[in-house]
């Protein structure tokens, strides 16, 4: 797949990468205290690559996610997408959240159509794009259901369809499968990998689950806490589909767990 033939992480990556995280630091300041959440975070994500961010809780991975998403501003450094600095949220970054974030008053179809409405996509195209996205995530029959009628896994597939509908440059996901059961999670992993290879999107995926990171990604950015920083970037050189039972898979998991200190 796309990522496997890419140059390895040890080679310097140029500024023509899809995403460049360049010396990003984040300090939260309140009247009583000053907390450094991120310090000197540097890494890049290539076009079409699947990168996971893992780390212990408190390592700032969610802060980093929110900064890349444009929901928070970096205190130092900057994030560039296709060379342009990120200054706020935008449709070039499709976002998928752990708590789904579906609009409960909109049906599945209407949720997926939301971003297209904002882009002013006119009606025949809009419906056909929504239909295409629902087909991609296998929810065509549930187009008229409200979110409350869906299981967690189905809700997240709507979330993915909605994020992809506006054809973003990159898909950002923050622990998207953290709220579903293990069996559903395995299924969603397969589905996400299929969608990734069909759409050839760049994916940046935050998780605390090391196995999930090894299962999915081309590279794993391992973070450490106090202050949040990148401790190592691990290339996952395994053929897909990957099985948790393979010894090489377990080696990667052990190596990353050791880095995290689990």
């Amino acid at each position: 797949m796309a990522g496997l033939s890419e140059p390895s992480a040890s080679e310097p990556r140029s500024d023509d990468a899809k995403v460049v995280v360049d010396g990003v630091g984040k300090v939260y300041e309140s009247e009583r205290q000053r907390v450094r959440a991120l310090s000197g975070v540097d890494f890049t994500v290539d076009d079409g690559e699947f990168v996971c961010l893992v780390g212990p809780s408190g390592c700032g991975k969610t802060t980093l996610f929110r900064t890349i998403a444009g929901l928070e501003a970096a205190t130092d450094g900057e994030i560039r997408l296709d060379g342009d600095p990120v200054t706020g949220p935008g449709t070039d970054r499709g976002m998928v959240f752990q708590e789904y974030g579906l609009f409960p008053w909109r049906t599945v179809r209407e949720n997926v159509a939301f971003g297209l409405e904002e882009q002013g996509v006119p009606e025949p195209e809009r419906s056909s794009r929504v239909g295409e996205m629902l087909g991609l995530v296998g929810l065509a029959e549930f187009a008229d259901a409200y979110p409350k009628e869906l299981s967690g896994g189905m809700k997240q597939r709507v979330g993915i369809a909605r994020a992809l509908a506006v054809d973003p440059e990159i898909l950002l996901a923050d622990e998207p499968f953290g709220s579903v059961d293990a069996q559903t999670r395995d299924m969603l992993h397969e589905e996400l990998l299929r969608i990734w290879s069909e759409t050839e999107k760049t994916v940046l995926f935050v998780t605390h689950d090391v196995e999930e990171a090894v299962k999915l990604s081309d590279r794993v950015v391992v973070m450490a806490a106090d202050p949040g920083r990148v401790s190592e970037i691990v290339d996952v050189d395994l053929d897909r589909p990957r099985e948790r039972t393979e010894p090489a898979f377990a080696d990667y998991v052990d190596r990353i767990r050791t880095l995290i200190g689990e």
Binding site: T91, M95, F103, Q119
Partner: peptide, 22 residues
């Protein structure tokens, strides 16, 4: 935030499409 990531960038649209329905 979800709405902002999907392209809502002014207050009136945010009120009409997110705040009022919610």
């Amino acid at each position: 935030e979800v709405a902002a990531s999907l392209g809502v960038d002014d207050d009136l649209t945010m009120i009409r499409k997110v705040v009022l329905p919610a």
